[in-house]
Design a protein around this nucleic acid. Structure first.
Lengths: 110, 110
DNA sequence: ACAGAGAGCTTTGTGATACAAAGTTGCCGT
DNA sequence: ACGGCAACTTTGTATCACAAAGCTCTCTGT
C-alpha cells in the first residue's frame, strides 16, 4: 500500500521549506493565501528583522510575491504564495509524509 | 474537528529531531527498533564521520542506547531507540502533523 | 610477527545560517 | 518640528552540518 521508496530520499527535502520558522510561515501562507508582514510577525511571534530575512529567502526562490502599499495611511507589505511556492510546499509535504509513514510501520502489521 | 492550536507552537518542534538527516535516522530507527552503524551508513548514504556526530547528538539526549561488540570478528556498533527517544519522536510527529494540517484547510471546507 | 582491511572515532576546516538587537528610512498625523 | 509605526539593514554571535583526512583497534592471511 505504502509507496516504494528509499529512505535516503530524505536528502531531497527542500531545505528552504524545512527550516522550522519558514515551515510555519509557508503553512500559514498556504492556509490564508495572502498575508501582511505585521500579521505574520504577531501570529508567529517573530522579530521583524528575522521575519524580513526569512521572507527574503522566499522571495529569492520566488515562493512568494511581495507587494508594498500604503493602506490606512500606513505602509503595508503583503505576501502572496506563488504557484511555484505552492508546488514546492506540496512536494515537501508529500515527501515528508512518505518518510514518516515508514516510521509508522512498526506499530502496524507487516 | 482539528485541534485548537496556535501556529506559533511550531517553536516547540524538537530541533534534535527536526534536522533532516536525524529525522531520517530516527524514522529508520523507529521502524526497525535497532540497527547497526554500517547499516545506517549505507542505508542513508552518509559519511561515517557525519553519521558518528549525529549519533552522538542522539546519545547526548538519550534518544538512543549504544552497544559495541565484536561480531563475526568485526567491530559492530548497535543503536537501539530508547523510550525517551520514541516519546520525543512521537511528540515531534504529532506536533508536525497538527501544524501541517493547518496548511490543508485551504483545500477543504470551513 | 607483519601487513592489510574493515569499523568506527576524532580532528580540522569551511560554509551556511538563524537570531537578536540596534540603528535607519519613509510616510504619516498633530 | 516631532513622534510613531512599518519595514528594512547592519552587526555580531552562536550554532551546526558536512567533508576529508588521519587514527585506533581488532581480526585475518601469510
Amino acid at each position: 500500500m505504502a509507496a516504494e521508496m528509499k529512505l535516503s530520499q530524505y536528502q531531497s527535502l527542500n531545505p528552504v521549506i524545512h527550516e522550522k520558522t519558514r515551515l510555519a510561515i509557508m503553512t500559514y501562507l498556504i492556509s490564508v493565501g495572502e498575508t501582511a508582514f505585521t500579521e505574520l510577525k504577531t501570529e508567529l511571534r517573530l522579530t521583524d528583522g528575522n521575519l524580513n530575512l526569512h521572507m527574503k529567502v522566499f522571495e529569492k526562490h520566488r515562493f512568494v510575491k511581495v507587494s508594498k502599499a500604503f493602506i490606512d495611511r500606513r505602509p503595508r507589505t503583503t505576501y502572496a504564495i506563488t504557484d511555484k511556492g505552492r508546488r514546492a510546499f506540496e512536494e515537501y509535504v508529500s515527501l515528508l509524509e512518505r518518510i514518516l509513514s515508514l516510521g509508522r510501520r512498526s506499530r502496524l502489521q507487516e
